[in-house]
Amino acid sequence: MRRRHRRLVSTPDLDITAFMNLMIVLVPVLLLGMVFSQIKMIELNFPGMASGEAPAADQFRLSVALISDGLEVADSDRGLIQALPMKQGGYDFEGLREVLVRIKSAVPEKTDVMLEVAPGIDYQSLVTTMDTLRSYEAVVAATVVEAELFPDVSLADAAENRTLAVAAVGGGQ
């Protein structure tokens, strides 16, 4: 009779050393290459008053209009303070900042401003205008700090066919 030899079946040991080395290197490289996005929130107030609330007659109500022709700074009750036409590089945010600093020095307790935005204004111009309205860089004790201008920004719609007051009057500020 013929003998049958039983084959020895053995399971090989898994060698995962190379795979572990790959993971040890790959995970930090992927984490370092990942882009972290930062989301910043801007709080807004919308125009309007509570029921039964009426504005004081002598209250200074500052409004800034962001239209396709430029920027207008006005007191909504008394009229135009300054019109800033477009420059070659875009809107005159430096001029706006100077006007707002002068207004803030005259009325330091004022913290709110109404921003009127015309249809078709790009998002970056809107955000840059809001940043300009909120604060400016000032030097205090040889240190540059963010000084507060008008942090309470309210948004409103400007008329679609609105033109810059300077252009309507015929130039000159």
Rank of each mutant, 00 (worst) to 15 (best):
G33K: 08
L84K: 04
L62T: 01
D15N: 13
N45W: 08
L155K: 02
F60C: 04
R3L: 12
V107E: 15
Q88R: 15
Y123N: 05
M1V: 09
M114C: 10
L44M: 11
L30F: 11
D15T: 03
D131N: 15
A56P: 09
G70F: 04
G172A: 15
Q124N: 15
G33R: 05
E160I: 07
G171E: 12
P47T: 06
D112K: 07
Q82W: 04
R6T: 12
R78P: 04
P85H: 07
K104H: 12
L149M: 03
A118Y: 01
V117E: 00
G70V: 08
G170V: 01
P119I: 05
I103G: 04
L8W: 06
P108V: 06
L66A: 04
L22R: 10
T11N: 08
V101K: 09
L62A: 01
R4F: 12
R61W: 03
I103V: 08
G90T: 03
I121E: 00
K110M: 14
V27G: 02
S37T: 12
A167K: 14
N21R: 06
Y91I: 04
L96V: 08
V73G: 00
R97M: 00
T128V: 06
Q59N: 10
L96R: 00
V73E: 02
T163V: 13
E146C: 07
P85C: 02
V144Q: 15
L149S: 02
A141N: 15
T11Q: 14
K110D: 11
G90D: 01
I67W: 05
E94N: 13
P151M: 00
V127M: 08
M20N: 11
G172L: 11
S105G: 10
I24V: 12
A106D: 15
G33Y: 09
D58Y: 03
L133W: 03
R3H: 09
E146T: 05
A158C: 02
A168W: 11
E53S: 10
